[in-house]
């Protein structure tokens, strides 16, 4: 494992911890898209089915179990425990607009036409766009809490660092997966606008607010 991937994984871990911290400290899921969290939950469930078929390393297993359980816990917190604070009126992105194209694309463009491989491919495509309901919600309300901004920054950085990791693996390990790389680039590009706002506003100590 190279440094890009390790730091990328740690950013992913930090993002999830930040998200749980925001919920726990504010006792509220205001400003969070339950739909994005459902999609991320689905991403982890469909990708980590190999937990039961393929052992890689203790690190790999522990991280997968943590990502799976924390994403399911987040969905649970949004829709049950802190439901009263969930801003469903602003979380109006239609999930089927992402789920159906990703499913169709996974069936057509994959490495092998087998259930496990199609589900893995689906999870890669879905992860690339799963943040859209959250970004859509922020564009509707025009603002995001600072801790939510930190969460999004860590989450966006993770896939950006994975791109560096894939370059490294291409040059030093002769390893390349076009599906993951193209989807990963799409995923990172979706955060660019947010990265700009994060650097110009949140890092200057201001709240993330969109121009009216």
């Amino acid at each position: 494992m190279n440094a890009f991937r390790l730091v990328g994984d740690l950013c992913h871990l930090a993002a999830i911890v930040l998200l749980l911290l925001k919920i726990w400290k504010s006792r509220s899921v205001a400003g969070l898209s339950g739909k994005s969290q459902i999609l991320f939950g689905l991403v982890f469930v469909t990708r980590y089915l190999d937990l039961v078929t393929n052992f890689v390393s203790p690190y790999n297993t522990i991280m997968k179990v943590f990502f799976l359980s924390s994403s399911i816990a987040t969905v649970y917190l949004i829709y049950t425990k802190f439901k009263a604070t969930y801003d469903g009126n602003h979380d109006t992105f239609r999930m089927e607009f992402l789920l159906i194209p990703c499913a169709l694309l996974a069936i057509v463009v994959n490495h092998e036409f087998s259930p496990m491989e199609i589900l893995w491919t689906f999870s890669i495509y879905l992860e690339a766009v799963a943040i859209l309901p959250q970004l859509f919600m922020i564009s509707k309300t025009g603002e995001a809490e600072t801790i939510t901004s930190h969460y999004l920054f860590a989450l966006g950085s993770y896939r950006g660092l994975y791109i560096m990791n894939w370059l490294y693996r291409y040059y030093y390990e002769n390893n390349f997966d076009v599906i993951a790389v193209v989807a990963g680039i799409v995923q990172t590009v979706l955060y660019c606008d947010f990265f700009y706002l994060y650097i110009t506003k949140v890092l200057q100590g201001k709240k993330l607010q969109l121009p009216a």
Partner: peptide, 10 residues
Amino acid sequence: RGKNSYHDEL
């Protein structure tokens, strides 16, 4: 596992 070459990644 299937044929994707990043099977060891998260």
